[in-house]
Design a protein around this nucleic acid. Structure first.
Lengths: 216, 216
DNA sequence: GTCTATAGTTCGATAGAC
DNA sequence: GTCTATCGAACTATAGAC
């Protein structure tokens, strides 16, 4: 068997991944409806038809973009939680840190842009669109249940309902970091930078933990 | 001067307001880019051309939709805060309540839908689009500064930067109420209903207050 | 696997009658 | 102030050559 005309789908650096990378950026910047496949093809340096060959249609491409990073993020989230459980007592602070750290690292993975994927996550979390709902259900509800259970373990006084609320509120707080609108800087005359993920985590973790404990 | 052929722009119940009402629903359901002016015209029972006569273009219509409710919401927010200041000591709990109550009441104003406008607010707050940024700056940054100052008054140990973070995080938590995705119900087997604004406020207020105090 | 070319649809906006 | 009719642009998706 001789070598193929071009690279396979699973070899990084090929056309397939170039499309995914470009799509991630454009979907993040312009939203699903605001995105034109032409622009993705242009940024990826491929013909528009190739997108349909690999991903069928726009929805298929979007789902692949979400699936790729969601896999990385949620595997890391699960591993982080496993490690904490293995170490013994679950501390609330560690749980929150374990929840958000992987989204940060997935966000800055693409060097040139400012962390595209996290912005896709924000729109996914807030959308009532059936496709968005379905993707959330598939990729994020299972790990959510995992963390909700962990919250209750760390704070036994928390009811089941309040653990769910706590998780939802935590995600809401985290979205102010992932949206990267620049609004904190504007409101604070440059004092607060929502582009600095480590700085933000140092404020987000105590805020959420204080909030959760106030629910008990 | 005899009576006009039809109602004026400032008379409720006229074509002008019918367009705004329909636009609010469709923009909330489908997002800005996902919205077709045809659908708005259809729902409002008017010709598509009338939208351009009254609002010039799609962007103009959207801005008017935002402006209308934002005026109501932020006047109420300002009044609430004034009242608290007049009463004497500022309690953190009252400030948070004063911040979110008006968005709830604006949300349920239109009877038939489930509070459309709050969903527009969510997408506005998370968008990096220039038009969204500009609208946020115009309508929501001034009142934000007002509440940030109030947070510092209520909790003097809070630094200016942390007061800005606290405000941002509070908005993030509030968005889990305004997005109305139904996810809390799904994650809790029906225990948590994000459609019940009063129930949510009873959990959001203590959560945020606990979070803010943890920042000091 | 990748490209070019284009079909077919939908959309925002305009022109002009009433 | 409101409607009908339509233009022109943009988009997704497909067909077919290589």
């Amino acid at each position: 068997m001789t070598e193929q005309v071009n690279q396979q789908r699973d070899e990084p650096g090929g056309r397939f991944d170039a499309i995914l990378d470009a799509a991630e950026q454009v979907f993040a910047d312009s939203g699903y409806d605001g995105t034109a496949l032409r622009e993705i093809a242009g940024k990826a340096g491929v013909a528009q038809g190739l997108i349909h060959y690999h991903f069928d249609n726009k929805a298929g491409l979007f789902e692949r973009v979400v699936a790729r990073r969601s896999g990385q993020i949620n595997e890391a989230r699960a591993e982080n939680l496993e490690k904490l459980r293995a170490e013994g007592t679950l501390r609330l602070e560690d749980i929150v840190e374990a929840l958000f750290r992987p989204t940060i690292e997935a966000g800055i993975e693409l060097a040139e842009d400012g962390g595209s994927f996290s912005r896709i996550l924000v729109s996914l979390a807030n959308s009532t669109d059936p496709m968005a709902q379905s993707l959330t259900e598939t990729y994020y509800d299972p790990i959510a249940q995992n963390y909700i259970a962990a919250l209750q373990q760390a704070e036994p006084a928390l009811s089941r309902a309040d653990a769910v609320w706590a998780y939802m509120f935590a995600i809401g707080v985290g979205m102010t970091m992932m949206a990267k609108t620049g609004r904190p800087k504007r409101l604070s005359d440059g004092l607060c930078d929502d582009g600095d993920a480590d700085l933000m985590l140092a404020r987000i973790v105590p805020f959420i933990c204080g909030g959760v404990r106030a629910l008990t």
